[in-house]
Design a binder for these strands. Structure first.
Length: 450
RNA sequence: UCCUCAAUAGCUCAGUUGGUUAGAGCAUCUGACUGUUAAUCAGAAGGUCGUUGGUUCAAAUCCAACUUGAGGAGCCA
């Protein structure tokens, strides 16, 4: 006999091990009629029922950790399985007063209540399902890139430059507040340091030796954003590819999103069915809609025209396409829940490193917008001329001292290349149908909350 | 950061124009129950009404500030 099975394994192998002895370890989720125990061990959304023959010697409460050795049998319907125990061991008892004040009590709790006890959320059906989906998506991202011969690069979390246009930064210092304003030379790194807002610049330099690379790590933004789709600490996938022009990087992005959704619908179908139910049965249809349709590709100019045709003077050329316009595009103009690829944004609303078109007004850039949550991917062809990049930085009055290395790579055998960044937590949010991004990351960080 | 709304028992919520001792359901605890799956039945316990200040003979209720949450905007991924 195997030492112990996960519940997932037992359900999968039930025909082979029926009427045999099995051992499981997990938590008591329900205890009914003094006889029926439901055990969950986190391996799957499903519980396994244990039926006591007589009252157990030791007291059983919901929430305790338990080991059961018993015989696996079919229920009277000859389909579902349950365990008749031979031996029960209780490991982790509970403090009932503490339990009653926790979200573990067998009751409906709002998502914001679960968030207040984020260290216990993993024991709930909904949050453990989200985390299993998140885990699978992480693995799939590596699979996708690995199959295409991309290399995974770890870019630094602490750095010393300011990528303007990517939000405010958190300082990293060992000086106290009074000392800090005196002299950064005395600080730990001998200069002003901050948590990174993006790994892109380092990713580009890695690409110059490895050709096709991606990063997957945390980034930090000190923006005072209080919304359901922003976090102060979030995870981003960034990819940089040599010899790719705009069209090719757009195609790669579309393929990535479709690959992830297609595979997650297989790997996590039980979790997604549960989440589908949680979302008025609209989630699975929405996900299928994404993988079965070609994304709509449309230029920024055309989007402005469409919006102004919808309602006169609703938006000016040069404005960013904010969330109210996204909603009009998805619900009023296209009304089909197919992702939108918007390309050739004006240079005034895009960062310095994006390649500018011959008209000197628009950039070789693109965003992919998903219904309900908006921008999920932003990318572009990168400027590879040293001179143009230098002039652009001067034009934006940016400090180039700490990114001179980034400029210099343009002098050392670079050629056209492109890249994109994908907001991982927003992707998990979209795929799980959660309304708030704080509910798809284990320990969310946002203003006034740590 | 701005706008709107909210905070009452462990949870989800009632609580009338300010007026006796602030209620219910579920969860918990005690007891009963060999086929339950949101189990059921009987009983018990559980609250400084988010915090601080103010108005009033009297505040869960009215006012102010703060804290936290929800929705929307901006910033963005």
């Amino acid at each position: 006999m195997k030492y112990y099975y996960t519940i997932k394994e037992i359900i999968k192998k039930k025909k082979k091990i029926i009427n045999k002895k099995v051992r499981i370890k997990g938590w008591v989720k329900y205890f009914r009629n003094n006889l029926f125990l439901e055990i969950n061990d986190g391996s799957t959304i499903k519980n396994l029922q244990v039926v006591l023959k007589k009252k157990n010697k030791e007291k059983i409460n919901i929430g305790i950790t338990i080991e059961v050795l018993g015989k696996l049998i079919f229920k009277s319907n000859n389909k579902d399985i349950e365990i008749i125990p031979l031996y029960i061991k209780i490991f982790g008892k509970i403090d009932i007063n503490f339990f009653n004040n926790s979200i573990l009590q067998n009751k409906y709790h709002s998502l914001s209540k679960l968030r207040k006890q984020s260290y216990l959320r993993f024991r709930t059906k909904i949050f453990s399902s989200i985390i299993r989906v998140r885990h699978n998506l992480s693995i799939l991202i590596h699979n996708f890139f690995c199959n295409k011969n991309f290399f995974y690069i770890n870019t630094p979390i602490i750095n010393n430059y300011d990528t303007e246009g990517a939000g405010n930064m958190f300082n990293v210092t060992t000086l106290n507040i009074k000392e800090k304003y005196k002299n950064y030379k005395k600080d730990f790194f001998g200069c002003k340091a901050n948590l990174t807002v993006s790994g892109q610049l380092e990713a580009e330099s890695a690409m110059l030796g490895l050709c096709r690379i991606y990063t997957f790590g945390p980034v930090f933004r000190a923006d005072n954003s209080n919304t359901n789709k922003h976090l102060s600490e979030f995870w981003m996938v960034e990819s940089e590819v040599m010899f790719f022009k705009l069209n090719k990087i757009i195609k790669l992005s579309e393929k990535l999103i479709k690959f992830l959704i297609k595979k997650i619908l297989i790997n996590c179908i039980e979790e997604l069915n549960f989440l589908n139910n949680y979302n008025n049965n609209k989630l699975i249809n929405l996900l299928n809609n994404i993988i079965n349709n070609k994304f709509i590709k449309i230029s920024y100019n055309k989007v402005i025209k469409l919006l102004n045709n919808y309602k006169k003077n609703i938006i000016k050329w040069g404005d960013d396409i904010g969330s109210i316009y996204e909603e009009i595009l998805f619900k009023k103009i296209f009304n089909n829940n197919i992702p939108l690829i918007i390309y050739n944004y004006p240079k005034i609303i895009k960062p310095f490193y994006m390649k500018i078109n011959k008209n000197n007004i628009t950039t070789k850039s693109f965003d992919i917008l998903l219904p309900y949550i908006g921008e999920i991917i932003g990318g572009s062809e990168r400027e590879n001329s040293y001179k143009k990049l230098f002039l652009r930085l001067k034009e934006l009055k940016m400090n180039i001292k700490n990114i001179s290395w980034y400029l210099n790579i343009r002098k050392l055998g670079t050629i056209y290349h492109s890249g994109f960044g994908l907001g991982f937590d927003r992707l998990v949010q979209f795929i799980t149908g959660m309304k708030n991004i704080r509910d798809v990351i284990p320990f969310p960080r946002y203003p006034k909350n740590i």
